[in-house]
Design a protein around this nucleic acid. Structure first.
Lengths: 345, 345
DNA sequence: TTTTAGCACTCAAACAACACAAGTGCTAAG
DNA sequence: CTTAGCACTTGTGTTGTTTGAGTGCTAAAA
């Protein structure tokens, strides 16, 4: 259990350190704190905090910095999200104010805005219905030998891919395949489709095409892309700002983590409600040891829930960041409700 | 004019320095060179080379490194491309050996291979006909309010985009628009299309749609994307390897250069025939001062010419790199001819 | 019992002094 | 024209010193 005074000190240590990056000592605290005690008293209290593992020294005679547990305690009990700066509000409203013709534009734009506001790296994920179902499949002939495959889900996701077919394949054959897919697979959830695709579909398709493998490749490809949650990333390059002593290797693994959709989905994890903070090694992934991740869901009513996140150094000004993320999720939800309202009516 | 011996020395300086990164001195050269002269003689020759601006010192008593002009002389007169290592041949053949369903896969894969072989950053551009023409336009309704716009050129490029329309727009209206576009614009080169789009098309479309702006936005968007040359980039992260003293700012500007298709197209420039090397500040762009760029065209006969390039430090082993780029362009051309042959027949 | 002043101690960081190695230019002799 | 020899320059690495910020502990004061 922490005393009031200890909390005050811990809060000050976190605030100072996240602002300056310099370990904070007893004397500086004594001057700064609203209570009148000597640096010796502060020292005693700091020793107690260190005892509990909330703060630590970088070397035997240095000032203190927060430990992961210290940050944890801070975000759980002590922090109060900062209200947005007027300037930030302007940025959000003007960047999100324009006209958009597709949801993805809004979501991708959001990642950019969020990274600008925070100067960290931002992720956004569009609102998603629990299990979306295949609602349509098309093959559109484009030229002598080019065909575009289009897959649509009932949550409005569209995946497409062009590919080349040998000219011996006729339009009738393609149409038959499309009909088959639509008859057999529309209405199923995507995992069910994948399953059927490995079971009886190949044989049925073989009735129409001599060599169905190529086609199945394409279809499977488009399908897995559709089943995958698609993240937008903004401010990738901001990671370079805290490349402590330019450790190229860890930077590389960090970037490959971010660019693999699967991996980053794992990192962000299941959307917890509200806002959640993960600090340093609380995340399993080693490449993130010096980072913190703030994730938040946003709720667009019947259109599902989405997610936003920012990734920055463990040593980030949490109060400000929590304020930004909290405000942005609201703005984004509002914008999307507007968007849907327009197209629904 | 350089004497035979001076050439030999320059060649050795470039080779040593690109291999080790350490300025090379007279004694080391004396030991290594096939002729028997003392280090003092080498020193005299080096002074002559420095006089001509081909090599320079990093400080008053250091060994010499090549100047930009020195590299230039080296690649123009002295270098001989290395033959490929057997291992590299394997890599190319196995990575390019598989079955592909679209050209873009081959080209994008090529960027990856090339970056792996060189451990630099690689660019690839697919073969392009001089001025491609609009050969078709589609609007495919996907659901209640989603529509996909597809644009096809006669060189086989496909651009597409989904967007949302208000439900008050009917299928008949869309069809009318498509017919209009195909009647009026198919067969024109893309610049001509752009021009017409700003002239009489908007009025004609207004006959069918109350508010054509949204649609024109989309069409224009797809159009500019189609007109743009699309580069594939492989091994982006390799740039981190030579982030000398981790200059974050210049890294950032480098990456934003690479990621803007327009800018990078400018950097790579017009495809010169054959293979060309640009060294350091020979390129106008400041962010590239410490880099060299090797570009090469490849020729797929009637299917046009494409381009590949690698971007690495000025201090790169040119002989090896020229060997790789030279061999790869041949392999790629061969692969593409194969590909076209299959689908053409 | 809590707070505080005082003091001895620790450590990182900055700096100076120094030796070393690699390399150069120059001179004079071969 | 080549070379041996030598004085000179400079980056690098080592070592020792100083300084300043900060700590823990003790004993006195509140």
């Amino acid at each position: 259990m922490l005393s009031e005074r200890q909390m005050m000190i811990l809060r000050a240590v976190v605030r100072d350190f996240t602002n300056t990056g310099v370990p904070v000592g007893s004397k500086a605290l004594a001057k700064q704190l609203p209570i009148h005690v000597s640096s010796a008293t502060i020292r005693n209290e700091m020793a107690a905090l260190e005892e509990q593992g909330l703060i630590k020294k970088t070397h035997s005679s240095s000032g203190r910095i927060p430990s992961v547990e210290g940050y944890r305690y801070y975000v759980d009990h002590l922090v109060k999200p900062d209200p947005l700066r007027p300037n930030d509000i302007d940025v959000i409203q003007s960047s999100l104010g324009g006209d958009f013709h597709k949801i993805d534009e809004i979501i991708s734009q959001s990642a950019t805005i969020l990274s600008n506001l925070t100067s960290y790296t931002a992720f956004t994920l569009k609102p998603e219905l629990k299990d979306s179902r295949l609602s349509g499949f098309r093959l559109v002939p484009l030229g002598k030998r080019q065909v575009m495959a289009i897959l649509v889900t009932d949550s409005g996701d569209v995946e497409n891919q062009t590919f080349d077919v040998s000219e011996s394949v006729t339009g009738d054959q393609l149409e038959a395949v499309v009909r088959l897919i639509n008859d057999q697979l529309v209405g199923l959830t995507l995992p069910e489709v994948v399953q059927k695709l490995q079971a009886d579909i190949p044989m049925k398709i073989a009735n129409y095409l001599q060599s169905p493998e190529g086609f199945l490749d394409i279809f499977g490809d488009v399908l897995t892309r559709a089943a995958q949650e698609r993240f937008y990333v903004g401010g990738r390059l901001n990671l370079l700002n805290f490349s402590q002593d330019s450790d190229v290797d860890s930077l590389k693994s960090l970037y490959s983590l971010i660019d693999k959709t699967d991996d980053i989905a794992n990192v962000l994890g299941q959307p917890r409600d509200n806002i959640s903070v993960q600090i340093g090694n609380e995340m399993t992934n080693d490449a993130l040891r010096n980072f913190s991740l703030i994730t938040a869901t946003y709720d667009v009513n019947q259109h599902g829930k989405g997610m936003i996140a920012i990734l920055g150094p463990t040593r980030m000004p949490y109060s400000r960041m929590l304020g930004i993320v909290g405000a942005f999720r609201e703005e984004l939800a509002k914008k999307l409700l507007d968007y849907y309202r327009f197209y629904d009516e």
